[in-house]
Design a protein around this nucleic acid. Sequence first.
RNA 1: GCGGGAAGGAAAGAUGUCUGCUGUGCCUUGGCACAGAGGAAAGUCCGGACACCUUGGGCAGGAUACUUCCUAACGGGAAGCUGCAGCAAUGCAGAGCCAGCUCCACAGAAACAAACCGCGUAGUCCCAUGGGGGCUGCGCAAGGGUGAAAUGGUGGUGUAAGAGACCACCGGUACCGCUGGUGACAGCGGUAGCCAGGAAUGCCUUAUCCGGUGCAAUGCCAAAUAGGAAAGCUAUGGUUAAGCCCAAACCGCUUUCGGGUAGGCAGCUUGAGCCAAAGCGCGAGUUUUGGCCCAGAGGGAUAGACAUCGGUUCCGGCUUGUCCGGGAUUACAGAAUCCGGCUUAUUGACUUCCCGCGAAC
RNA 2: GUCCCUGUAGCUCAGCUGGAUAGAGUGGCACCCUCCGAAGGUGAAGGUCAGGCGUUCGAAUCGCCUCAGGGACG
Length: 104
Amino acid sequence: MIRWIKSHQEYMDFMQAAKACRTEHFYAPTLPSPEGLALGITISKKVGKAVQRNRLKRRIKAWCIMHPEDLATQGRMNLIARKGAAELSWEQLSAELCQLMRSV
RNA sequence: GCGGGAAGGAAAGAUGUCUGCUGUGCCUUGGCACAGAGGAAAGUCCGGACACCUUGGGCAGGAUACUUCCUAACGGGAAGCUGCAGCAAUGCAGAGCCAGCUCCACAGAAACAAACCGCGUAGUCCCAUGGGGGCUGCGCAAGGGUGAAAUGGUGGUGUAAGAGACCACCGGUACCGCUGGUGACAGCGGUAGCCAGGAAUGCCUUAUCCGGUGCAAUGCCAAAUAGGAAAGCUAUGGUUAAGCCCAAACCGCUUUCGGGUAGGCAGCUUGAGCCAAAGCGCGAGUUUUGGCCCAGAGGGAUAGACAUCGGUUCCGGCUUGUCCGGGAUUACAGAAUCCGGCUUAUUGACUUCCCGCGAAC
RNA sequence: GUCCCUGUAGCUCAGCUGGAUAGAGUGGCACCCUCCGAAGGUGAAGGUCAGGCGUUCGAAUCGCCUCAGGGACG
């Protein structure tokens, strides 16, 4: 079961993250954690306007629910979207997320 | 048919499968039922409701500006008035330079109460028949030239030369009277030479309105703790949420350092609400009656993927049309306390009305 | 939520109490200098003054409305 990170303080912990993975449109710092998997999503205003940011967040959430076999079993991760991520199609997005999760 | 102009509404998708989210209700406590973004939710350009701030007053400051009306209010809207643009439909603009100050570059004599050239004339000197020229002084706004702008135009009287100095007509301005209109104003008649500028989206004047801060307002519960330290101002002082002052009230106030907590509930959606009919009003609107309940998140839900059918457009086929196949595209954009406007963004279209020109009848 | 600032040559900025031609540095271009470069010198080009409307005789400058970018506070 995925736990979504919601508090501001927990997001600030990722400033000190040692390990990080990156692809063309995403940057994901990770932290070790004893309990199960925890995911956070960060999309800044540089990515697009409010409609595009909301749609990208919903798509990432939906992909994580549909592909639990690709995700790690434990650890904390913050998915930060970079410029251009809102223009990706569904196939491109899932391919990039697959690549990101395998490199963890 | 061509060209132009104005107004308006609706928001381009529909269905199914799988996987999910938020709220409310129900009970067997994890299932079911119902509901779940917009016309602009946006920009934050205005106006309010609501909440808090010991109190009262003044100045300062801000906003608006033809008239009447609508509205809770408005810088919004409706109907008109005047001016300008346009053949017209129509569009755009709107207090006051007879209170004071300031500015009007360059050019020009002069940019506000003006003499450079010029037109006249008195004295004097020179050449000297008439007359011409120089210097000093005075009168003159007709002509020239400059400029965006130089004191209304035409004709006459008048004069040394001229001039609204005076006269006639025309144009403007101010005032008076009558008529129409709630009013801005319009029409008619009369009087006055009054006719010496422009800029208040320059300072400003006049009239009207405005206290400040904002739902992270504010209230309650829970948790935590050190009512701590230093510096400054101190009763002719300080504070009273704001630039200043006064009154009244109160006795501490300001800055820095250090420590703690950063959870929950309410506010939070029944409202200047929406729909329909009837009445009133040219209209913006408003009154009555009946019906309805229509998002409430809090790292922020309202969806993601796939399939089918559509819309628009492009390419190909031939069986040329309510055809078949393939590709692209399917706007702008996401509630955050809530309303009333304004402004901006917007795909493909649609509806209604008006004006001009041309043709036919 | 409440506010503030900025927009001028490819880049960094002046000019902002209206006055005509919008400047400076730097970069790019051409030429000179040198055996060749660098440095230096000379010359020309390059602008919708973010956009629109208005005020004025005249607007980069004043007023209003938009657009874009950046920032502050709790």
